[in-house]
């Protein structure tokens, strides 16, 4: 599992979902959490964080800059391109999952989800990171 000191950037335009994802992170030992309210704010927080972000957990549908747009921006960036990036979304149709995979998403969590599912998805990302 990720080191407990890993900084997690949680991005969602809904405060309620930021709280839920934040609690899920804490329940698996990841307590260093910063939040952003959309993709644009997320990029700002990522690039100005006083400590390196080690994991992004982002919603897909958000105003200003969506999760998939942010993912593409992160993957295209020389400094942040390999950062683990999880999309959390209510969109589970094949075309959208395919778009996320093609954009380089590390893992994909479909809402509704419980803490056990969240933990499994984060562990899968950790395995990918450590194997690469």
């Amino acid at each position: 599992m990720f080191d407990p000191s890993t900084r997690v950037l949680v991005i969602d335009d809904m405060l309620t979902m930021r709280k839920i994802v934040g609690k899920a992170c804490k329940s698996i030992g990841l307590t260093d959490i910063i939040e952003a309210k959309d993709g644009r704010d997320g990029w700002e927080k990522l690039t100005t964080s006083d400590k390196e972000v080690g994991l992004i957990v982002s919603d897909w549908n958000m105003p200003n800059c969506t999760g998939i747009e942010l993912l593409k921006r992160v993957r295209a960036d020389g400094k942040y391109g390999a950062l683990p990036f999880i999309l959390v979304t209510a969109e589970k149709e094949g075309s959208q999952v395919k778009e996320a995979i093609l954009a380089g998403v590390s893992n994909y969590i479909v809402k509704p989800f419980d803490v056990d599912t969240f933990k499994v998805k984060v562990e899968e990302v950790y395995k990918k990171v450590t194997q690469s």
């Binding site: 809904m14 405060l15 309620t16 979902m17 549908n61 979304t89 209510a90 969109e91 589970k92 149709e93 809402k111 509704p112």
Partner: peptide, 22 residues
């Protein structure tokens, strides 16, 4: 203060149902 919770729930419900309906 909690009102965005109902929007999120509706998003999740509709997102799930939409996949089946589509």
């Amino acid at each position: 203060e909690l009102s965005d919770g109902i929007a999120e729930l509706l998003n999740i419900i509709f997102g799930d149902a939409k996949a089946v309906l589509n």
